[in-house]
């Protein structure tokens, strides 16, 4: 028997009864007071004029946690890119990877048409989700991933070479780093005005308008740029992994 299984069985002897006991002792599902949620809702609604409470919590009450999350994302993407590049270095090829003797089939016209129609619409939808972070469901993380999907649709429809021309690597690096920097620098505004780091110092605006929520739209923009750049960069590095090494590379 493998040591992993032995360890798991030993742990399960203690943890399974404990989990079952807890499950039956937990508060009544859906019928217990939610003091923190109610306090956060009242604060966001009346003092920050935000209508999407989840964004309000993430980018105002827990803004420092979200900065940590943002930096964790940056570190994970940076680590992945560094490991994938290895000795390959920064050199990237602008042609698609090809295996000798195997022809690359042409993309079907239906795929090209569909991608050309969908990519701009997806990009627009992503921007909409980012800009309405404090109003309707969505925000920087969700919108950033949608924008990254629009970038991948360009790859699917136009092919690798055109994709690299339209979205060069340095642009993606700038999006990733610039977005994280925008978030951190926006936090300094509070310090400059004698308040706490990441304090929401901008006026709350009118409830339901695009400019409500003070600092929240700006922080969302930073997160969206970083997420879009980061996920597109990961995809680029995974694609680079499929091509044959050049002379002098690993």
């Amino acid at each position: 028997m493998r040591p992993r299984l032995l360890l798991a069985l030993a742990a399960a002897l203690v943890l399974v009864p404990a989990a079952l006991l807890l499950a039956f002792r937990m508060p009544e599902f859906g019928a217990h007071p939610l003091p923190y949620g109610d306090a956060a809702t009242a604060l966001m609604l009346h003092e920050r004029h935000v209508t999407n409470m989840v964004s309000g919590v993430n980018f105002d009450l827990r803004a420092i946690d979200t900065l940590g999350e943002e930096i964790m994302l940056l570190a994970a993407v940076g680590g992945a890119v560094m490991l994938l590049r290895g000795a390959r270095g920064e050199g990237g090829q602008r042609r698609a990877a090809a295996i000798p003797g195997r022809p690359i089939p042409r993309r079907s016209e239906a795929v090209v048409l569909l991608c050309r129609l969908l990519a701009p619409v997806t990009l627009l939808f992503g921007l909409y989700v980012v800009l309405h972070a404090q109003l309707t469901p969505g925000g920087g993380f969700q919108g950033g991933v949608i924008i990254a999907s629009a970038m991948l649709l360009v790859w699917l429809g136009e092919g690798y070479a055109a994709w690299r021309r339209m979205l060069p690597g340095p642009l993606l690096h700038a999006l990733e780093g610039g977005g994280a920097a925008l978030y951190a620098l926006a936090g300094l505004a509070g310090l400059a005005l004698g308040d706490a780091f990441l304090a929401n110092v901008l006026p709350p605006g009118e409830s339901g308008s695009l400019l409500s929520g003070g600092l929240i739209p700006l922080l969302n923009l930073g997160v969206a740029l970083a997420v879009a750049g980061g996920f597109a960069m990961l995809f680029l590095e995974f694609l680079e992994e499929t091509r044959a090494p050049e002379e002098g590379e690993e």
């Binding site: 939610l34 923190y36 949620g37 956060a40 809702t41 966001m44 409470m53 989840v54 309000g56 919590v57 993430n58 009450l61 827990r62």
Partner: peptide, 8 residues
């Protein structure tokens, strides 16, 4: 409304 903190 339900709790926004856990959703965040």
């Amino acid at each position: 409304v339900v709790d926004p903190v856990v959703q965040a």
